[in-house]
Structure formats: C-alpha cells, structure tokens
Design a binder for these strands. Structure first.
Lengths: 218, 218
DNA sequence: GTCGAATGAATCGCCGTTCAGTCACGGCTT
DNA sequence: AAGCCGTGACTGAACGGCGATTCATTCGAC
C-alpha cells in the first residue's frame, strides 16, 4: 500500500545549481526541492490543511510531478521525516564519537538536538507537530528511524549505567522516551511561540544540567 | 468562526442514569455521551481518520445531533480537551493542597498526571496524540486550559525555588514545558504500545526521582 | 396544537490522484 | 551536419470519491 517506486537514490551527487539546460533526467535534486517545499508548507498550515498543489507550487513543479517521486501525500511527510531524522542521527553518531564519558555525551546529545533545530524553526515545527498527524506514522510505532533514534538515546544512558556514571535503578528506555519528550516539548513551545534566537540553547543548558544531576550516581 | 452555540452548560447535574422515558430536552448528558464516544473513536483511528458518523453511531445518536451540541468536528475535539483538562486541573489543585513542600507536591503532580491516565488509555491517547492534530488548537498556542495547566506546573516549581527547596537557576516555565513533554512522551509510548498495567506508575516513580534530584538545591 | 429536539438522507465543495498529451534530449541514420 | 525517432520526465486539467454539514421532516412532551 505504500511501496516507494521509481525512485533512484544517490546518483550524480546533484551539484545543486540549476546548471545549464534544465536536464530531462529525473534528479534527486528535484526530490529534495519537493521535500524542502513540503517543510515550508506543512510548517505553515499543518499536514492536513496543506494542499498537494501548494507544495507543488512552492517547489516550482507540477502537481503530478510530486507523484513521480512520492506515492502519496502521506509518503511525502513520511519521507521527509525519515530523511531528516537520518541526517540528525548520522550527525549525532559522528559527533558523540568524539566525546568520552556518558555524561559528556548525553549533554552533547541534548545540545545537538536542540541546537540543530535552533536555526530551522520550520523543520522543528514539522517534526514536533506534524509527525503526530499522520496516523500511519504513529501506528507503526513511529518509523524505523524514529525508533532507531530513541534506541540510540537509550544506549547512551545504558552505557552510562554500565560504566557506573549513572544510577542503574531507572529504565534507559523510559528515560530516553522522557528525555525525547522533554526536548520535544520545549522545541514545540519555542517553534510555535516567538522562537527567539538563543532560546533553545539556553533551554538546552538547563535541561542538560537537570538530567545529568538526575541521573548521577551517588 | 467557532463560537459555541446553543449549549447550556452545567444544569440539572445530569443524574447519569438513563432515567425513565428518554426526555426530549437537550441534555448535558447527551453532550457527555458524545464526548465519551469521541474519545473512543478518536483514540482508535485518530482525529482526521475519524468520521463524524462514526462518533454519532458510537454515541447512539444521529449525525445531525452532534451539530446541536458542537459547532464542528474540530469543536468536538477542542471541547473534549478543554473539558478533560479542566477536570484534571481541578483534581490536581484539590490534591496538591493536601501536601506540604514543593518536592512532595511535584512528586504528587507527576504521579497524578500519569496515574489518572493509567486507567484511561483511550483518553491518554487522545490527549497526547490527537491534541496535536487540530492545527487550530495548537496555533492558538494551546487552549486556555492547557496554558493554565502549564502555568500551574510552573508555579509549583517557582514555589519550590522561593522556598529554597529548588535550584533557582532554571526557568520554571521551561522546566514546566519540559516536564510536561516528558510525561507526555512516556504516556504516548505507553498508550500506543502495550499499555501494560502498572507501567505508568513505575515510570512515574522514576521520573519523579529524576526531576526531584535534578531540581534539588545543593 | 405548539414547540423544538432529534433525525438521517441528500448535498456540494473540495482535493488527492490520475493519465493523455507535450516536449527535451540523445542516439541513430543518411 | 542535419533530420528523425524513441524514450521517459514532466505537465496540469479533469475526475471521482468522500465526508462534513445541512435542513426538511418527524414526533415526543407539555
């Protein structure tokens, strides 16, 4: 009911520029343009109130073209989410590898999740709000990537317990969910509110402190 | 665009029972029946995938009747949310008044938010998931009741800071958002997952411990 | 008989999706 | 080099289904 068809991934690294004579080859570049447009539109009006034709217009593409790259409107949201979460996850893995100790890593994780969104209010809004709008996404218990993300958070905590840095009388999974929820809640307020610069960074510092103290073994 | 019409609130305390000869007077009782049915339907399929006719059927009422009590499908969700949040808030205010000290009160708050939902998986699901589905609800920065709820949480924290129990280098508002997010995240997983009995209670204990340690002045 | 709550079939506008047609490209033939 | 095709990406008007909402009608209570 929702296989992704046609799509060729990674290919010709898409040198981004419109280049010379608008090619006639299907490009990942176009797929990306659609995703970017979708972020804007979804953020402004929410998934259900967004029209496919609006996304098409914003992407500078015909309505039908969207269906060459995605199966359905739902698939656009899902792909968007998968795609961006994957990026975040990759960035996190790379970055956290540079740090020693569960505390430092957890702090960095919090800073990064909030930090990356600080400059991307629209994306933040789509992820926190719209994710919950596609029933399918949630029913499947979140997409694979999302579960992967939570498991990653849980593993950071579990590592800390194993090394003796963190209390081991709490469930890493529950803590991961709670931490994600906390970050998500703060982001939501920020995105829907004034979204003032630096707001998330300040929140990140406070939250990191709170969680580290809360998890500290003593 | 969304004034609530016709509706008579609180009146005749609705003695709940179907009573004798199904009256021909508009009753709060019927309104409540519709809300209860809406919880079930929304929980099962999500707000957008739910059909007004399904709610009507579940409530044992004609489609059109719903429009005698609510302005629109959106209004049903909004009313549901306002109504239930108000109940929770009232219960919380009463309960917390019985406890001395910000720590005890915060712990009780966490236990209650999770505890009240423990027996009401469907309601939990509607509140955590569906709330975010009505763009309007969110855009208005959450309903009045929701803001009220958050302010209440923030005030518990602020009290603790004033009394010297909690660190005062964190923003009560940010912490309230984060705490709500954490509880919400845990509830969401629980509601969508196995929802095993006692799961939320256990989570409540862990979360309370974590937050109290994190907020503790030292 | 009057009032108005309740009904539920019919309406009607909307919007996701389709698909017949267009057109750019690149290879092939001459 | 110039003309000719075949291919398939792209287009966007038109379709079709769906479901929220309406409202003419029913009927119970007083």
């Amino acid at each position: 009911m929702t296989e992704r068809r046609f799509i060729r991934r990674g290919e010709a690294a898409s040198s981004e520029g419109r280049a010379k004579g608008g090619g006639r080859k299907r490009t990942d570049d176009k797929r990306e343009r659609i995703l970017r447009a979708a972020v804007k539109v979804f953020a402004k009006k929410g998934f259900y109130a967004s029209r496919v034709s609006e996304i098409a217009k914003a992407a500078g593409v015909a309505d039908g073209t969207i269906y060459l790259y995605f199966d359905s409107k739902d698939d656009v949201l899902e792909s968007l989410f998968e795609d961006r979460t994957e990026r975040l996850l990759t960035a996190l893995r790379t970055e956290l590898a540079k740090h020693e100790g569960a505390s430092a890593r957890l702090r960095r994780l919090i800073e990064m999740q909030l930090g990356l969104l600080e400059g991307q209010r629209e994306l933040a809004e789509v992820i926190t709000v719209n994710l919950r709008q596609s029933t399918r996404l949630l029913r499947q218990y979140g997409s694979k990537r999302f579960v992967e993300y939570l498991e990653f958070m849980a593993s950071v905590i579990a590592d800390g317990q194993r090394s003796g840095e963190f209390r081991d009388d709490v469930s890493p999974r529950v803590m991961a969910r709670a931490l994600f929820g906390a970050l998500d809640g703060v982001t939501l307020t920020w995105a829907l509110g004034e979204a003032r610069a630096g707001g998330l960074d300040k929140a990140a510092a406070q939250l990191a402190e709170l969680w580290l103290r809360g998890l500290e073994k003593r």
